[in-house]
Design a protein around this nucleic acid. Structure first.
Lengths: 237, 237
DNA sequence: CAGTGGTCTAGACCACAAT
DNA sequence: TTGTGGTCTAGACCACTGT
C-alpha cells in the first residue's frame, strides 16, 4: 500500500473514532505532513481521498473540516471499489441460482456495447442472487468468451468478479452505469416474486478491464423494496 | 481556468475530434508535458480528469489509450459538475409550475438530514418541472431559510441553483444521492400523469456547499419512461 | 499582515512490460 | 535495457480569509 493510502486510512480512522473535534478544522496540511514525514503534495493527495469520499471538505484560507453528516454514510463511501455483490455484502450470505448459462453469438446491441464483432461468442448468463435466502436481484450478464473464459457452474455459484481478479488475474478498471425504473416482466415476477405493479430498479452496466476492454454488459434487476443505489459526488478542488 | 483544466480541455477536444488514433496510445506524458510547456505532474493531473470521465485509461509500462466506447458517453461525463436541471438540459426549454411554496419548521427527518435544529425554519417547495412542455420531474425540496434565503416565485420559475451560485455567491461542493424505484402516489399521478402501475424513479439528495453545510434535502420523482440516471466510475490509479 | 489551501515545477526513484 | 506510467519530494508562488 502506498504512502498516501496509508495516511488517508489513518486519518479516516481518526475521523471515525472522533479523535478530531467536529467543530474545529483538522490540523493544517503543513503540520500533518510533518507528523507523517511526507511532502505537502502527498498529504494533499491523502486528504483528497477523504474529500472524494465526502468525509472532509476544504476551504481556502480557513482549513480542512469534517463533514458531520458524512459520517453516517461512511460505510457506503469506502466501497467505491470494483467489487461484485458477493464482496459488497460481506458478512451476509449470498447464494445464486443459475437460470440460464449459454454460449451464443451476441445480438448487435450486445456486440456494440462490448465493442466486439457479432461472430465473437459471448456467455449469456442469468442468475438469481439471494441474500440471506431472500431473492435480491436478477442478473442478466453478457461476457465475451475470449476475454473472460473458464466460467463454469462452480464460478457462477460463487463470485464471477473473484474469478476474474483471482482466477484470471485480470483487473477491473471501472463501469458505466445507467439506472432506471421499469415495470416487471415475467422473469421478475417468477424469480423475484414481484407483483404486477411492483416496480423494478434496473442497473445497466458496461464494465471495463484496466486494459480498456469492455468485459461485461449486464442488466441487474432489483426488487424496489430491497435495493437503493447510493452515490457520492464531491468536488475536490 | 487553471493550466491543468485548459490542457485537459484541449486533449478532450482532440479525442472527440479523433485527432489521436484510437488504436495507438496517445503521446506519452513526457512528450505531452513538453508540448504544453508544463511539468509532468501537471500533465498527469490533466489526464487524470479524462481518466475519471472514462475517456482515457492508462497501463503502466504501455501508455495511455482512448476508451473507444467512452466516446459514446462523452456528453454525459462532462457534466460531472454541480448543476441543476436548468443548466443540465441546456438547449432544451425547462419550465416550472409551483405546487407548494411554504416556510415551515422541519420534520425531525428533514432537520436531521440538513444537520439543523427543528426550530430552524426551512423552505418547503414542490415544483413540477417541464422539459419542452412535457412533465418531466416532480421535485420536493427542503432548504434552510437562514442559509439560502431570498427565494421567491421568480427564482422558482427559473433555476434555484443559479440563484445560489450567482445571486447568493455560494458555491456547491457536492451531493449524497440515493436512487430507488417506487410506486406512484397521488401527486405523481396528478402532475406527472402516471398510470397507477407506472413506476417512479426517485432520487433522494442531500446537497452541500463548499462550507460543508448541507443546504438542500430533496426528492426528485421522475417518470420511468423519461429519465435514466447515468454514472461513470473509473479507477484512476 | 499571517495562515490557510490551490497550483505548479524539476527532478528523483520505483513498478511494470516489451524487446 | 528502454520506455512507459506511479509515487514522492522540497520548494515556489498564488488566492482567499480573517485580524
Amino acid at each position: 500500500m502506498n504512502k498516501y493510502e496509508l495516511i488517508s486510512k489513518e486519518i479516516r480512522r481518526r475521523i471515525v473514532a472522533e479523535i478530531y473535534s467536529m467543530d474545529q478544522p483538522i490540523p493544517d496540511e503543513v503540520t500533518l505532513s510533518k507528523e507523517f514525514s511526507c511532502s505537502r503534495m502527498t498529504m494533499k493527495r491523502a486528504l483528497d481521498i477523504l474529500v472524494t469520499e465526502g468525509l472532509l471538505f476544504r476551504r481556502r484560507g480557513h482549513g480542512t473540516f469534517i463533514v458531520k453528516s458524512g459520517l453516517q454514510n461512511a460505510y457506503v463511501n469506502v466501497d467505491n471499489e470494483n467489487k461484485g455483490l458477493t464482496n459488497l455484502l460481506i458478512g451476509k450470505k449470498v447464494t445464486s441460482k443459475i437460470i440460464k448459462f449459454d454460449v451464443l453469438f451476441p445480438t448487435k446491441e450486445v456486440a456494440s456495447q462490448l465493442a466486439i464483432d457479432t461472430n465473437n461468442p459471448v456467455y449469456d448468463i442469468i442468475r438469481l442472487r439471494y441474500v440471506e435466502g431472500e431473492p435480491y436481484v436478477l442478473e442478466k450478464t453478457h461476457m465475451p468468451v475470449n476475454i473472460i473464459g473458464g466460467i463454469n457452474e462452480a464460478v457462477l455459484h460463487g463470485s464471477i468478479y473473484n474469478h476474474i481478479s483471482e482466477g484470471l488475474k485480470l483487473s477491473i478498471a471501472g463501469f458505466h452505469r445507467k439506472i432506471r425504473a421499469c415495470k416487471p416482466d415475467e422473469l421478475d415476477r417468477i424469480y423475484l416474486g414481484c407483483q404486477p405493479d411492483d416496480p423494478i430498479l434496473e442497473v445497466e452496466q458496461v464494465a471495463y478491464l484496466n486494459t480498456g476492454v469492455a468485459f461485461e454488459y449486464s442488466f441487474s434487476r432489483h426488487r424496489y423494496d430491497r435495493f437503493v443505489f447510493t452515490t457520492v459526488n464531491i468536488t475536490k478542488k
